[in-house]
């Protein structure tokens, strides 16, 4: 199915399918909901305005993920320069949708994971976020990041190794 990004029907179709994925990518790179919202908005506006033809929904999805990831990386690069200011306004999603003891444990674990992901070097972070939060396979990640599949494999492994060592220091609660 060919996708024309300025065609209203195509746009809505891609939007409903891809928005949750790009929102997750933006969030797990920046860990700020408002910033992620702006990034996703910017990515979809570019998508709509550029009037690009894609061979399939997947191609459009890869394009959007690539743009979102680049915008998110730019934000965290800027953020590292303005660390003190951003720390104050950092926002996390509300936890009201979860309840009970299990949810509380998960929320604790969530914060630990989030801190670990934030500390990953940029190259490993991009690969891990696309793998764990965008549900993409090695081939798709390779296509989005313009790297080889074996490179993706190595980066996933290295990212998990670092994640493990960081999470090991804390007590991990896994259900």
């Amino acid at each position: 199915m060919e996708i024309k990004s300025s065609d209203n029907e195509s746009f809505r179709h891609v939007y409903s399918e891809v928005f949750p994925i790009v929102m997750r990518v933006a969030y797990h790179v920046t860990y700020n909901m408002d910033v992620s919202e702006d990034i996703c908005q910017e990515a979809f506006i570019r998508f709509y305005e550029k009037n690009i033809s894609f061979r399939s929904v997947d191609e459009a999805k890869y394009w959007l993920i690539r743009v979102t990831k680049n915008l998110s990386i730019n934000v965290i690069k800027r953020k590292s320069r303005e660390q003190a200011v951003v720390e104050k306004i950092k926002k996390t999603p509300s936890v009201t949708v979860r309840n009970g003891e299990e949810a509380l444990i998960n929320e604790e674990t969530r914060l630990l994971v989030r801190d670990a992901v934030e500390k990953l070097p940029e190259k490993l972070k991009s690969v891990l976020v696309l793998k764990e939060y965008a549900d993409l396979n090695y081939k798709q990640i390779a296509e989005i990041l313009h790297i080889s599949e074996s490179n993706v494999k190595v980066r996933v492994h290295r990212a998990r190794k670092i994640m493990e060592s960081m999470l090991d220091r804390e007590e991990m609660h896994v259900s």
Partner: peptide, 21 residues
């Protein structure tokens, strides 16, 4: 599983999805 399950969930995304659209 731990890393993957600490993802932003659908309910958290939904309001933003509508707002941006």
């Amino acid at each position: 599983k731990v890393v993957s399950s600490s993802r932003l969930n659908e309910e958290e995304i939904a309001p933003y999805q509508q707002k941006v659209l």
